[in-house]
Computed example of a mutant assay.
Amino acid sequence: MRLLLLLLCGVSVLTSAHGELYLAKESRSPDGTVVFAIIYAPTDQHVEGSPACCFVHPKSKKRIGNIFYLDGVDADTARPGTYIFDHYHLFDYVWSADSTHVAIVYNMRHSSRIYPFRRQGSSFQQLPMPDLVTPLEERLRGTLQQDHNTFTTANRWTRHHRLIATITRNAQVSSSGNESKDWREHSLRSTISFDATGKPHVEAAHFRVQITP
């Protein structure tokens, strides 16, 4: 049953003395040479904190670049074989068309986080995300109340390697007693560029308000 669940999740498993390497097959780059992998401690060991991550070649399993950690990713709840991993869509992967940039999105119950990377030859550079929450909250001033859930989506990479990302939060704008009318989905779609050192810059942002789905 466990093997079946792992296959359904599109994850392959390798076991070594250092832990278990999980390859997310759905994360394969457009050129077919890279997949995202997570290294977990053996299943009989409990380790707190974020699991070690890396990029590898999908066939040779040779690591590309250094091992890194995704801050905020829980090593227990995000582990294949757990209920949350097997029943929820925890990760999304958005590659650029030329396979030089990727955004990994970690989906949690009440929020989500984006981790962008730039590929440079045989290495990957993790890029910082700009603050998207504060600009959205400034747009929400004057609303009666706000939902605690805030979700961020990586939409796509542009031809010039700008990341299009959208942050969304629901807020109550009136008190008529009609929930479908009083609550609106507020979203801010940003175009983010990264300079040569990796520093992010929001070039443009589009604010949108619509009826809550």
Rank of each mutant, 00 (worst) to 15 (best):
T143Q: 13
S96Y: 02
P116G: 03
S60T: 15
F36H: 04
A41D: 08
D98Q: 12
D74N: 06
R63E: 11
G81F: 11
T43S: 15
D147G: 14
A97C: 01
G81I: 03
A103L: 05
V47I: 11
T100E: 07
L140D: 09
A78N: 12
T143A: 12
V73A: 08
P116I: 01
S99Q: 02
M129C: 03
L132G: 06
Y106R: 04
P80D: 01
G65Y: 00
P116R: 03
R139F: 11
R79F: 08
S111I: 04
D92V: 02
D76Y: 10
F68A: 10
V35A: 03
D76M: 10
M129L: 05
G121H: 06
R79D: 06
Q126K: 14
C53L: 09
P116D: 01
L132D: 07
Y83K: 14
E137R: 07
G81Q: 02
S96E: 09
I67P: 07
S96R: 04
G142K: 15
Y93S: 03
Y69R: 14
L127P: 01
P58A: 02
M129P: 07
H101Y: 04
C54A: 12
Q120W: 06
Y88K: 11
I84V: 10
L132N: 09
R139N: 05
D71S: 11
D131A: 09
Y93V: 00
N66P: 06
S112R: 00
F55I: 02
H87K: 11
Y69K: 12
Y93K: 00
Y40W: 14
T100Y: 08
L70Q: 10
G49V: 15
F68C: 09
T100I: 07
G142F: 09
G142S: 10
S112I: 00
D131P: 08
S122F: 04
N107E: 02
K59P: 00
Y83N: 06
F117W: 03
Y88A: 00
Y115C: 06
T143L: 09
T43Q: 10
